[in-house]
């Protein structure tokens, strides 16, 4: 029975995801994104079948494991778009350095302002970075990696929902700027949204996610400890 649970949890997760993608493609609503709906459906299924999370995760963690290789796979589009990167290097570097710094500082300041406590606040800090990297940073700075993963998903959904509205409000016209802001702030769902706007927007959004991860690693290990020391003690 326990042995069966491993392939079963992988198969069920994949099936729920597959069905979710079908619905998402049919209606094109950000709220239907698989990173929001699939986990909710699976939680309900675990409850209904009286399965504990550790029992489920024993098998499903192998799907989560593939996030590592999938992150590495981003080297391929990065390589293919290397000329675009070189041409827009200043724009990419400056906007993402500012974006990453604002993400770290504003998440933390708003969290402290709301009195969320150090564990939750620390877990919020890497919420604008791609998950495998963010979970690593979360652990190092004293957060809870799983909670960080959940906050990233909420970020992605919120960013995907607000993105179009903010682009209009701030009168962002450049495709590169649209892509960079969506990829920087809304990650997965932002990239999907950017690709709906156009190929160029989507490319910049994917670039933003990878580049921001690298910049954030540097920022989180340099400026954040200072901020943390000043505000939490």
């Amino acid at each position: 029975m326990n042995l069966l649970l491993i392939p079963a949890s992988i198969a069920v997760t994949y099936f729920v995801y597959w069905l979710n993608i079908k619905c998402y493609n049919r209606w094109k609503l950000v709220i239907l994104t698989p990173i929001l709906i699939s986990p909710i459906v699976l939680i309900l299924l675990l409850n209904a079948t009286n399965t504990s999370f550790p029992a489920y995760y024993k098998g499903a963690k192998w799907l989560g494991y593939m996030l590592g290789p999938a992150t590495i796979a981003f080297a391929v589009p990065l390589y293919k778009q290397f000329d675009v990167v070189k041409k827009n290097f200043v724009e990419i570097l400056c906007s993402l350095t500012i974006g990453s710094a604002v993400a770290i500082v504003s998440s933390f300041l708003y969290a402290v302002w709301m009195h969320l406590g150090s564990q939750l606040s620390n877990s919020l800090v890497p919420r604008s970075i791609t998950t495998p990297v963010a979970m690593g940073i979360s652990k190092v700075i004293g957060g809870i990696p799983t909670l960080t993963a959940v906050f990233i998903i909420i970020t992605s959904v919120v960013g995907g929902l607000l993105g179009t509205f903010l682009i209009q409000l701030l009168r962002i016209k450049e495709p590169s700027a649209k892509g960079l802001m969506l990829g920087m702030s809304a990650l997965g769902a932002g990239i999907a949204k950017a690709f709906e706007m156009g190929e160029l927007e989507g490319t910049f959004a994917s670039l933003a996610m990878i580049t921001a991860a690298i910049i954030s690693i540097i920022l989180a290990s340099t400026i954040f400890p200072l901020l943390q020391g000043d505000l939490l003690l």
Binding site: S95, V102, L120
Partner: peptide, 28 residues
């Protein structure tokens, strides 16, 4: 509270990133 922090911070990040990128792209 968590939702508020995430939404506020996401808006802040988007605005800073988008406006910076657009400003540099236009200048160039």
């Amino acid at each position: 509270k968590l939702l508020a922090v995430i939404a506020l911070s996401t808006i802040t990040v988007m605005a800073f990133t988008g406006l910076t990128a657009q400003w540099i792209a236009k200048r160039r």
